[in-house]
Computed example of a mutant assay.
Amino acid sequence: MADGLLELEPLPSSPGRRMELVITAVRTAIDQGRMKPGVKYSVYQLAEVLGISRTPVREALLRLEEVGLIKFEARQGFRILLPQPREIAEIFAVRLALELPAARKAAANATPALVNALHEQHTLMRQAAAAGDETLFAQHDLRLHDLILQAGNNSRSRAIVKSLREATRLLGASTADTTRTLADIDAEHLPVIVAITAGDVEGAEVAMRAHLVNTGRHLVSQAIPEGDSDLDADEIWTSIVG
């Protein structure tokens, strides 16, 4: 199969690490639809359009392969991947195990600084939802969850969830469809913030569980190819998450 066309801007001159710039460029291209899942691209092609050597490109792609966003193929080729339904359910099983305790701890230690940060982030989410900006919304969503994980005082949990969210990032915006808008997703976060602000430990866990389960089930359903009658979203979810 011929390599897919790449229309990316050359990387700007920067004192930062070229590998990190390549990672950002690839993620941005995916978010904007300029690099598509399943299409074969090449290391040489990407290095050429970005205007840099192949070494930092390979390093960046290795990092992206680690989190499951790309898969290398023969002759320096690679493809953007979408997580499979079962993988998504597994990811949310782990997220539930890590983010529910974090929500409880955040509620038990709801400092004024944390409460203000959560409300500020939620305001930004609401503004992005009103503007229909899915990319910006996803960024603020990620930051809000990270604030809660940070309050949970477990840096390893934060790192794990960040990696897991990268693995489902390609599907993040697609959870907003005709049945679940950005405003709907935004509204799911409000009970979490209200419970944490009130110091309601049980309520924070219940609200976080409801949000993660709803999001996970949507992603599992949407990851099943249309017309594939051999896969059932409810069965996949129940078998893994319960």
Rank of each mutant, 00 (worst) to 15 (best):
L212S: 03
Q127R: 14
I52W: 01
L212T: 04
A93Q: 14
G33R: 06
I193R: 09
V220K: 03
T238S: 14
R156Y: 12
N109S: 11
A198K: 05
R54Y: 10
W237M: 00
I148M: 02
L69A: 06
P85E: 14
A47W: 08
R180N: 12
E90P: 01
Q127M: 12
R34C: 00
A47M: 09
Q139G: 07
A138R: 05
V194Y: 02
V213L: 11
S13E: 13
H119K: 11
E120Q: 14
V22L: 02
G242R: 02
P83K: 10
E7P: 04
T215M: 15
L136H: 09
M35Q: 04
V43C: 02
A110V: 06
D234W: 05
I236K: 10
T179E: 07
T197Y: 01
I52Q: 00
L164M: 08
Q84I: 02
A29D: 07
P15T: 10
L5K: 13
L164A: 08
P191W: 04
E48A: 13
S14G: 07
A233P: 00
R79W: 00
D230H: 08
D133L: 09
M1V: 09
R27M: 15
I70G: 04
G38M: 08
P191Q: 08
P225G: 09
D177E: 03
P56D: 02
D234K: 07
P56S: 02
S13I: 13
A159P: 00
L50D: 07
S239P: 00
H145F: 03
I88D: 03
R79H: 06
R158C: 14
E188Y: 07
G38W: 05
R63I: 12
L212R: 02
A223M: 04
A173W: 01
R209A: 10
L171G: 15
K36Y: 11
R104A: 15
F72Y: 08
M125L: 06
P225E: 11
S163H: 08
E87T: 14
A102H: 00
D133S: 06
D146C: 05
N109G: 03
W237C: 01
E202L: 08
V67K: 08
A110I: 07
T135V: 15
E7I: 13
D141T: 02
R75I: 05
A233W: 02
N154H: 13
G16C: 11
R126D: 10
L50Q: 03
A128H: 01
P37F: 10
T111Y: 04
D186Y: 06
P225R: 08
A195Q: 13
G38R: 00
I240Q: 07
K40S: 12
E202N: 07
N116D: 15
R126H: 12
A29G: 09
A223L: 03
S174Q: 12
Q127P: 04
I224H: 00
Q45S: 13
V26D: 05
L136K: 10
G199R: 06
A74N: 09
H119A: 03
Q32A: 07
R143A: 12
G68C: 04
P10K: 03
P101G: 03
L64Y: 12
D200C: 01
Q150R: 14
D141C: 02
G199N: 05
P15H: 10
E235Q: 12
L142K: 08
Q45T: 05
